[in-house]
């Protein structure tokens, strides 16, 4: 089981900030393809990855990063702290 978290406009568009999934995805990119295949808001949100960042277990990673053994994957827009 993998916890997925969404923030900011992704969370609003998907209508949830958290879900738990069963997945066979080996990388973040594979997981994104699974989510896109759901269609609807997921297909919209993950259509253009240039505006999306991913974190595995709370570390930002590239989309080709492995997720085997991960507990949590998060997706969010570029950060605007400070």
């Amino acid at each position: 089981m993998l916890d997925l978290r969404y923030f900011a406009w992704l969370r609003e568009r998907l209508g949830t900030g958290h879900e738990t999934v069963e997945t066979g995805a080996e990388t973040v990119a594979d997981l994104v393809e699974e989510l896109k295949a759901r269609g609807g808001a997921y297909a919209f949100v993950f259509d253009d990855l240039s505006g999306i960042r991913a974190a595995v277990d709370q570390d930002v990673v590239p989309f080709e990063a492995a997720i085997s053994g991960a507990r949590e994957v998060a997706f969010f827009p570029p950060m605007t702290g400070g």
């Binding site: 923030f7 900011a8 930002v60 969010f76 827009p77 570029p78 950060m79 605007t80 702290g81 400070g82």
Partner: peptide, 14 residues
Amino acid sequence: LMDYLKSRAPFWKK
């Protein structure tokens, strides 16, 4: 600190 906070700390402003 400020340069890193701007784009490496997970905050989103609305």
